[in-house]
Write a protein that binds this DNA or RNA. Structure first.
Length: 298
DNA sequence: ACTATGTCCTGCGAGC
DNA sequence: TGCTCGCAGGACATAG
């Protein structure tokens, strides 16, 4: 679901709402769980930690955790697990907590993942896979119908690739040197740039006047300069509008974004180009829908 | 090392 | 109404 602007919006929303709160207990759904780290390690890493901040790295949401949370208040005995038949992990001594004073909780939302700040009495949505109970009485819930999302913990999380809004033009240009893959595929490669997904790749290529099938290595310096500026422009505008709500995307407050109203090619197959009226084409590149104007993009 | 393809999941809307 | 099909914001493993 979410690309850089949506993840940025979600991370900012979470940061403003849960920074300073303390994770008191964690519940994880049963296998197959969308976990990249072992469940006991996730539980041990999160519990009794204070949330020092929440930020975005590529398409990942990173909760920065620090020691100093109050000792875990045990749940009332007999309280049922949120979802019938699933294991309830509690703070325990079986798995030693990391020795470092800091750690991170990493969430990747995949296609359909959501992180919601809820009250305990709010109905547990279907496909809820994790719940972190906070000292304030609220809960952070991870809901993900398609299970492409992933949870993990780290001591010093590192993501590959460059942040598109931080990378300099020269480095940006060098990323595509000698690559025979279509520029669309290269933009989606998170090891090059991190955070660009299908919508923003298409929108950026339209603004830069470049067809998605063009080989990355065939782009001129001028092409790459225009693409660099287009990517930055599109992402900044989208962040300002709270991201794109295409089907069911909402941020952690349940608010929709509005950048979908600015889409010029994505999802507009057969509709007239907003610049030249030529019908927008849709082709499949690397298994992903790709939209472009055959007149405006060369 | 780079590139193309299939696969993991569930839900929704279009078309019959 | 109810079925099947195709498609969906992503990222891996695998094969060439």
């Amino acid at each position: 679901m979410p690309e850089l602007p949506e993840v940025e919006t979600i991370a900012r929303g979470l940061a403003s709402r849960v920074t300073g709160d303390v994770i008191e207990s964690v519940w994880l759904g049963s296998k197959p769980e969308p976990l990249k780290s072992p469940a006991p390690k996730i539980v041990a890493t999160l519990e009794s930690k204070r949330i020092a901040g929440v930020r975005r790295v590529g398409k990942h949401i990173v909760f920065d955790l620090e020691n100093g949370g109050r000792p875990s208040l045990r749940l009332r005995s007999g309280q049922a697990s949120p979802v019938k038949g699933k294991t309830h992990h509690k703070a325990g001594a079986r798995t030693p907590a990391p020795t470092s004073n800091t750690a991170q909780w990493i969430v990747h939302l995949g296609m359909t993942g959501r992180l919601l700040v809820c009250k305990p009495e709010d109905e547990i949505e279907k496909h809820t896979h994790a719940i972190a109970r906070l000292a304030s009485g609220r809960e952070v819930r991870f809901v993900d119908p398609r299970r492409f999302g992933r949870l993990s913990v780290a001591q010093a999380f590192e993501a590959g690739g460059h942040e598109p809004l931080e990378v300099e033009l020269e480095r940006f240009t060098s990323l595509f040197h000698g690559r025979k893959t279509p520029i669309k595929s290269a933009l989606l490669n998170q090891k090059l740039l991190r955070g660009v997904g299908n919508i923003y790749a298409d929108e950026s290529l339209f603004r830069a006047g470049i067809r998605p099938r063009r080989r990355a290595s065939s782009l001129t310096q001028e092409n790459l300069r225009r693409l660099y500026l287009a990517v930055r422009e599109v992402l900044k505008e989208a962040i300002a509008l709270g991201g794109s709500s295409v089907s069911d995307y909402v941020d952690s407050d349940g608010e929709e974004g509005f950048f979908q109203l600015q889409h010029r090619v994505y999802g507009r197959e057969d509709e007239p180009c907003l610049v030249c009226q030529t019908p927008i084409k849709r082709v499949v590149i690397a298994g992903r829908s790709s939209h472009y104007c055959p007149t405006c993009q060369k």
